[in-house]
């Protein structure tokens, strides 16, 4: 049936060496049937626990949300549901707030992901040197990752205060006027991104570092013998070897950026779900939350959720396409 089966059944049995596992009886039909069953069904048993939990706590909510997105459901009167077809989706497409949230999600996503991964790459490069107290640097850079979104955002909100925050105090010291971090479009998006960057840069740096260390030394040696400079080595040896890792981090970061929620919510304080007075930092996650949990339009919130899901699938498809193209080019 499958390759593995063929191997197990068709391959001649090896002679047992020292009888380490006890003598094996001659192939008997019952045993071989057991063996076949094992081969055929074990994989399902392996994935079963995951899919069991996933079905109850993941798939059901997902499908229910899909169903709900085709209905008018209000959290204030959840007993009343009314079929509205694609109305919720049509309404989204014509809604300025939705597009605004989509735009913000994209810009904050770029603002947080690109510097984060670039800095991580640079840091990994530095960490790859022979360093004194190597472990200290690595652990120290990883600590922000241990901080919860809530705790981290709490601190950053204080630091970014307009009138009494430390950032503005420091900026005033170098002659830059106070920045209203929350009210400005760019300033607020930069502030929110900085929280994301702070939490994740060190973690990504370690992942890149691991990948760099897996690059065989002789590749560098060959390049060095060819007279390649350090920068050229980085471009022509390190980066290509890192490509799969970079791809992985890009995928994970993109998913994280699309779902960005806690940081802007808490950064906005009371009414944070709006993402500022002009929705200047409202992400899709916040828009969903606002629709569902503040305006109580559950059906519409579900439509936002499914739209996010579809957007991510689209990104994934494009990503896969690009990856394949890259592989072919190579």
């Amino acid at each position: 049936m499958t390759a593995t089966t063929t191997v197990a059944e068709g391959a001649p049995r090896r002679e047992q060496g020292g009888g380490h596992h006890g003598g094996r009886p001659a192939p008997d039909p019952w045993r071989s049937r057991l063996c076949r069953w094992d081969l055929r069904y074990s994989p399902y048993a392996f994935v079963a626990p995951f899919f069991l939990f996933f079905t109850v706590f993941g798939l059901f909510p997902l499908l229910y949300t899909g169903w709900a997105s085709l209905h008018r459901i209000e959290l204030t009167s959840p007993g009343r549901t009314e079929w509205v077809g694609l109305h919720n989706y049509a309404r989204l497409l014509g809604n300025e707030f939705f597009w605004n949230a989509l735009r913000n999600t994209a810009t904050i996503g770029v603002l947080s992901t690109v510097p984060q991964l670039l800095m991580a790459l640079g840091l990994a490069h530095l960490l790859h040197y022979r360093l004194r107290a190597a472990t200290f640097w690595r652990v120290a850079l990883l600590t922000p990752y241990a901080t919860s979104v809530a705790a981290a955002t709490l601190v950053f909100v204080l630091l970014y205060g307009r009138d009494y925050g430390m950032v503005n105090w420091a900026l005033r010291g170098v002659g830059i006027g106070p920045v209203d971090w929350q009210s400005g479009t760019w300033s607020s998006q930069i502030a929110v991104s900085s929280i994301v960057i702070w939490r994740w840069t060190g973690y990504n740096a370690l992942i890149y570092l691991a990948a760099m260390r897996a690059v065989p030394d002789d590749l560098y040696e060959a390049a060095a013998l060819d007279g390649a400079s350090r920068a050229r080595q980085f471009r022509h040896v390190t980066l290509p070897a890192l490509r799969p890792t970079v791809l992985f981090t890009v995928v994970v970061s993109t998913i994280g950026a699309t779902q960005l929620f806690g940081e802007p919510l808490l950064f906005g304080g009371a009414g944070g779900q709006k993402g500022g007075a002009s929705r200047q930092f409202q992400t899709l996650g916040l828009y969903l939350y606002e629709q569902g949990w503040f305006n109580f339009h559950l059906g519409r919130a579900c439509a936002v959720a499914w739209s996010m899901f579809l957007i991510l699938l689209l990104i994934a498809a494009v990503n896969a396409l690009l990856a394949r193209r890259l592989r072919q080019d190579r």
Partner: peptide, 20 residues
Amino acid sequence: LTVGTMMVPPQLSVVPLFMV
């Protein structure tokens, strides 16, 4: 399917999950 679930925003499942 598994990879697809990674893309489901967690805020989304709260109501059905709470029902369960």
